[in-house]
Amino acid sequence: MSVEQPIEHTGEPLLKLNNVSKFFGGLAAVQNLDLEVKPREIISVIGPNGAGKTTVFNLITGIYSPTSGNIVLAGRSLAGLSPDKVLRRGIARTFQNIRLFNNMTVLENVLVGEHTQLKANVLGSLFHTPNVMHEEAEARQRAVELLSFFGTELVERQEEYVINLSYAQRRRVEVARALGSIPKLLLLDEPTAGMNEAETLEAVKYVRRLRDELGLTILLIEHKLAVTMGMSDRIYVLDYGRKIAEGLPEEVRRDEKVIAAYLGKPTAADQKAAE
């Protein structure tokens, strides 16, 4: 089982965003964002709705390309790479509104996640060469092992279509699919969204285990402040596409700008209306 160990985050950052901006037409979704993730860190990005958190993820994973600025993974720029190329570099992700392949089984979903790890070409697949058969058997074995990270139930239900699974189970399958590519950095977009308290606690547990047992670096978006405070090494706070605070959980908790962003700050218009 996981043992709490103090982890030192030294050396070069694994992921680095330099002054990244993204504009949709005139709308600034993300502005001049600097962000660093060091190996084996758990970093949270928080902020109110519409703060641009998911846009940051889409920028990192190549779904959007930044209007300006640079994104660097382990010293190499990710600029202009398509999502599958980004994944090959070692960044896997999950989505806020779970995007599983609903009409595929649990196991098939994870096998798609292993896509980049497999080499079978058309002729090999057609004629079932020994290499392909071996690779396929290994892929299945590994997919089952990945599912077993979340206990036995997903292993038992591997042949089921994911649409039959509960919400929390689907989240776990999505993480297993992301793990299939053997990433260095895992991006989790609201891993506890829509979950009850018990399920949230469980999610927090497995996020830690992902780091402690698999040695992953994790960047996650969270909405629930309490959850973030408990598991993050550092927190970035976004509002209106700008970074308004960063630091250790305790520092962020006491930051006035963060409190204002979350609780709402009376604007000039509000004050006028109050009078």
Binding site: L87, F101, T116, A120
Partner: peptide, 29 residues
């Protein structure tokens, strides 16, 4: 054979959800 291969899974994944497929490493092009 194609349907049950790595390639077939990628095809079905694209049909189901292009963005998720791309983010799982499937080269859409």
């Amino acid at each position: 054979r194609l349907r049950d291969s790595r390639l077939g899974r990628a095809w079905i994944a694209i049909r189901e959800d292009e963005i998720a497929a791309a983010s799982s490493g499937v080269n859409l092009v």
